[in-house]
């Protein structure tokens, strides 16, 4: 291995760019700086996305009406948490709501919904995105008549328990054998999730744009 020969040819010992050590120092310091910045940003992000933080509501938000409206000052769609609107007609305490939503998450993981669907746009692309599924006009327009259920949440339970019986098109959802209890928990999860502030994703939900 050459030692300092190359340095003299450069004329500037100590800052020889052909010396690997120069770049080693650069690599280490750049990485450390980035990691420190990331650590600070992560602490701050956790504050915002923890339950009850600025962007993520508490689980008992399932007791309220949830909308999704264009906000002119932010220039994007934002969730709007409105008047009381208990899920399945029953107002839950925070503890009850937390337990229910927790179970919903376990359903979602145990059936690997994410390997067909996306949540906040992450997952697989075989089925529709579920971020705002709670607000999907398909429930009142298609599935409430099809299942004969009087409310959105009951239609969702009926669909989730037997999706293969209520297809809307050729690419149907298979039956993953959710119990009624599991299906209700999943509905609570989807309702809570629709209240998360996602910086405007998805855009124009439910509003068809004209071309150009």
């Amino acid at each position: 291995m050459k030692v300092e020969g190359a340095t003299t040819h450069e004329g500037r010992a100590g800052l020889d760019m052909t010396d690997p050590r120069f770049w080693r120092a650069g690599a280490i310091s750049t990485t450390l700086v980035m990691l420190v910045v990331l650590a600070f940003l992560s602490v701050d992000s956790m504050r915002v996305i923890s339950v009850g933080g600025a962007h993520v509501p508490r689980y008992d938000v399932v007791n309220r009406h949830i909308g999704y409206q264009y906000d002119w000052s932010r220039r994007e769609d934002v969730p709007v948490i409105g008047a009381p609107e208990p899920l399945f007609g029953r107002t839950l305490t925070e503890a009850q709501a937390t337990a229910l939503v927790r179970e919903g998450k376990l359903v979602i993981q145990s059936r690997a919904c994410m390997d067909c669907h996306t949540f906040f746009g992450n997952g697989a692309y075989y089925g529709p995105d579920l971020t705002k599924s709670w607000l999907d006009p398909a429930w009142p327009q298609i599935w409430m008549p099809m299942t004969g259920k009087p409310t959105r949440e009951e239609a969702m339970v009926a669909f989730l328990m037997n999706p293969d019986q209520y297809p809307t098109w050729t690419r149907a959802m298979p039956n993953l054998h959710l119990t009624e209890r599991e299906a209700r928990a999943t509905v609570a999860y989807l309702k809570w999730m629709s209240a998360v502030d996602t910086n405007g994703f998805p855009a124009n939900f439910g509003k068809t744009q004209t071309q150009q």
Binding site: K2, G5, A6, H9, M17, T18
Partner: peptide, 10 residues
């Protein structure tokens, strides 16, 4: 830079 690196290495 690559040239310099290779020249330095003969």
């Amino acid at each position: 830079y690559l040239e310099r690196l290779h020249v330095a290495e003969g």
